[in-house]
Amino acid sequence: MDEKVEIIKVGIADMNVVSAPNRIRTSGLGSCVGVVLYDQGKEIAGLVHVMLPDSTLSKAGTLNHAKYADTGVKELVKKLTQFGARPSMLKAKIAGGAQMFQFSNTSDMMRIGPRNVEAVKKELAELKIAIMAEDVGGNSGRTIEFCPKSKILHIRTVNKGTQEW
């Protein structure tokens, strides 16, 4: 029990992998979606903080894979596999995709949260990764932390405190 627990932080449009006893965290998810993938039989997990649904929206020269739902999830699976996870054993927990501000003229861009969630789910379905827990939508920001040992996702919001998923 004396092992030092390190918390790996993942920034916006970023990803990383972690093994027990360490944990992995991303802060301030709004319309962004945090996707946690973990190997059910091993104590390793990865987290990607997705900002946009679709990499074809990109007008940038260089593509940051972690920014988009479609490329981010694929890239994380690849990273986890290199890290020792078995693709067939991967499960997912997702959180985020909130609608932070309510506008009357809801353009597509302003609906970005729900679109991110849809895109993540579509990508996970294509890769045949089951979603074990999801806390998506609503209108509050979330900070999430995953423990690869217990496979519990801790979700903190300003109003509701910390919940376990």
Partner: peptide, 27 residues
């Protein structure tokens, strides 16, 4: 200006909203 919207929440959750347009073009 659009009608302003108020939110009390985490900085990350709020500011990332304003970065959506930009994020398609740049990091």
């Amino acid at each position: 200006p659009s009608v302003p919207a108020l939110s009390v929440d985490m900085v990350g959750a709020i500011i990332s909203y304003g970065l959506i347009e930009l994020s398609q073009v740049s990091d």
